Computed example of a mutant assay.
Amino acid sequence: MVRILFLGPLRDLAGVQEREVTGPLSWNTLLEVVGPEVAEQLRLDRVNVACAGRVLADKTALRANDGDEIALLPPVSGG
């Protein structure tokens, strides 16, 4: 299983803090399983994706295997 963590406002959009799905997981599969509202946000450049503890330079190259954790990282706000 691949564990997907929804952080910040993405958690509110998803309605859950995390979800487990069967791996492997590609970018397109991730967009399908997170739902349309979260997928729309993930397509934005300002939202990052981390897999197995590393932020991906190219999130569309995502390849998560069973046992991996994906964190969906919204932009940081504050001042």
Score class of each variant (00 low, 15 high):
39 A>H: 09
47 V>K: 14
75 P>M: 13
16 V>P: 04
13 L>Q: 15
27 W>A: 03
26 S>N: 02
52 A>F: 04
42 L>A: 04
44 L>A: 15
30 L>Y: 05
75 P>Y: 06
46 R>K: 15
4 I>R: 13
28 N>M: 04
54 R>P: 02
73 L>C: 07
30 L>Q: 09
19 R>T: 10
50 A>Q: 06
60 T>R: 13
49 V>D: 07
59 K>Q: 06
74 P>R: 05
65 N>G: 01
66 D>E: 06
31 L>C: 01
59 K>S: 00
16 V>D: 06
68 D>K: 09
5 L>K: 15
14 A>H: 14
75 P>N: 02
66 D>C: 00
39 A>D: 09
21 V>G: 00
3 R>G: 00
58 D>E: 14
12 D>L: 09
56 L>Q: 07
10 L>W: 10
2 V>K: 08
68 D>N: 05
29 T>C: 06
29 T>G: 08
74 P>H: 13
30 L>H: 03
25 L>T: 09
27 W>Q: 07
67 G>D: 00
35 G>I: 08
39 A>K: 13
27 W>S: 04
42 L>C: 03
78 G>R: 12
15 G>T: 15
9 P>R: 15
54 R>K: 15
54 R>W: 03
56 L>T: 02
1 M>L: 06
24 P>T: 00
49 V>W: 15
56 L>A: 05
36 P>Y: 06
54 R>I: 04
8 G>N: 11
24 P>L: 04
37 E>R: 15
63 R>F: 05
47 V>S: 01
9 P>Q: 13
75 P>T: 09
26 S>A: 05
67 G>H: 01
44 L>N: 13
41 Q>M: 15
47 V>L: 13
66 D>T: 01
40 E>P: 06
26 S>D: 10
7 L>T: 12
26 S>W: 08
78 G>K: 13
17 Q>L: 13
78 G>E: 11
30 L>A: 03
